[in-house]
Amino acid sequence: MSFFKKLKENVSKTTESVTHKFMSGLSKTSASLVGAMDSVFARGKIDEEMYEELEDILIGADVGVNTTLEIVDRLRQEVKAHRIKDPTELKPLMSEILVELLRGEDEATGMNIQDGQLSVILFVGVNGVGKTTTIGKLAHHYNQQGKKVLLAAGDTFRAGAIEQLEVWGERVGVDVIRHQAGSDPAAVMYDAIQAAQARGADILLCDTAGRLQNKVNLMEELKKVHRVIGREIEGAPHETLLVVDSTTGQNAMQQAKLFHDATHLTGIVLTKMDGTAKGGIALAIRRELEVPVKWIGLGEQMDDLQPFDADQFVHALFGEDIEKELAGTE
């Protein structure tokens, strides 16, 4: 069975609406990345020039230099091992390599939600990446599952941040624990945990500041918030998610490294994937930081924030090729 067929079968286990969201949200990246590959493979020759052009395409899609070199090296090995001569046979191999890289060592990339007790999810990231919107959409997601959700307005410094979170709270029907602007974010987290436990909440979603004008102060503040949460609930925060704007490309990679050094990240949320043709940043972050992508923003609607799925991601990139190959084998 070809890898394309396996990929199609894995994707068919999910709903058509989810598959459509991935296909639609990643259409720009697919057109740019896979479209460029088509022109290279159309030359009909596997040689050093082809590999160099593939490297340029992947780097241009923000896959990152190190990850690009690994992908192309693995492709070379497969070509040699299977004595492949026709470049059109490389696409299934590429898709298989990309799925493996996105999955990483552990395929279990779901959220660490505690059964029967409060789960605390801490969100970090710079201003403007869609952090507050992501929190609101995730609150909606868990609310729809019947979970009791509470929000903590830990970004006490950015003008309007608290009010913005409250707007989302009203929109999705969840309460927000807040202090006055300029308050100590750690104190907000402490009160939010007390309130969540008293109200029997299942999930507490915690917003934080994202200013980078003074990196030292911001990182120390995040460490303090982390300590306070861990002191109140053993093992918390159960998730520390970095929200990054996919359209910023390699800047997102630099942000990821900065926050990963300051606080132990358990996952990445990639926003605005529908607005970029350089969705390869998902591969770069996954491989170079060894942190799984857990959520992906594929549009502006409430349910366009989707759990990340490596099979869905790669299927969305190679969708037309998958359908063509399978149609030709029927």
Rank of each mutant, 00 (worst) to 15 (best):
E89M: 12
R43S: 11
T68A: 02
G275A: 13
L75R: 01
R231M: 11
P237A: 10
L218D: 00
M23T: 13
H226L: 12
R178N: 00
G299Y: 06
A152P: 13
V79C: 04
Q254W: 02
A42Q: 13
A42D: 15
L317R: 04
E78R: 02
V167N: 01
H260R: 14
G116V: 10
D245G: 05
L102V: 10
K137V: 11
N143S: 15
M219A: 07
I229C: 14
K45H: 05
A152N: 13
V124D: 04
D261M: 08
L150N: 05
A236Q: 13
A139W: 07
A282C: 04
D309R: 09
I229Q: 12
G154C: 14
A236L: 12
P307C: 07
F22K: 06
G128K: 08
D303E: 07
N112Q: 13
Q194S: 09
E288A: 10
G267K: 13
D274I: 07
Q77F: 10
E239Q: 10
R199W: 13
V99L: 03
F259G: 08
L7A: 07
A277R: 03
A209N: 02
A196R: 01
R286A: 10
K148C: 04
H315K: 08
I285T: 04
Q180K: 13
G280W: 06
V291Y: 01
R199H: 15
I59H: 11
V291F: 02
G182H: 07
D261I: 03
T133N: 09
N214Q: 07
G60W: 03
I229F: 14
R231I: 04
L212E: 00
V176D: 05
D245N: 08
G210W: 01
E96Y: 04
T19E: 15
D202K: 13
D106H: 14
E232S: 14
L258R: 03
R74F: 02
L69A: 00
P307Y: 04
S183P: 09
A252F: 04
R231H: 13
A262I: 00
F3N: 06
V216E: 15
K137I: 11
W295M: 15
F22G: 06
D304A: 02
S32Y: 08
R171L: 04
L138T: 09
S27I: 07
Q197N: 14
G279D: 05
I162D: 05
Q144I: 10
A61W: 02
E232M: 15
H260T: 10
S27C: 08
A186W: 08
A152R: 14
A81G: 07
G249K: 09
V243N: 03
H238Q: 11
G280I: 06
I233D: 09
A152D: 12
S95I: 09
M111L: 15
E100T: 12
H140I: 03
A195P: 01
K28S: 07
R287G: 10
P92G: 06
D321E: 04
I84A: 06
I71Y: 01
G154R: 13
G200N: 03
E300L: 00
A198Q: 12
F318N: 01
A61S: 15
S27V: 06
I177G: 05
V79W: 03
A277N: 05
A252M: 10
I233R: 06
K13V: 08
R83C: 11
A256R: 02
D321P: 00
T132R: 08
A262L: 00
T271M: 06
E89I: 03
A236K: 08
R74C: 03
E9W: 05
A192E: 02
I71G: 01
Q197I: 10
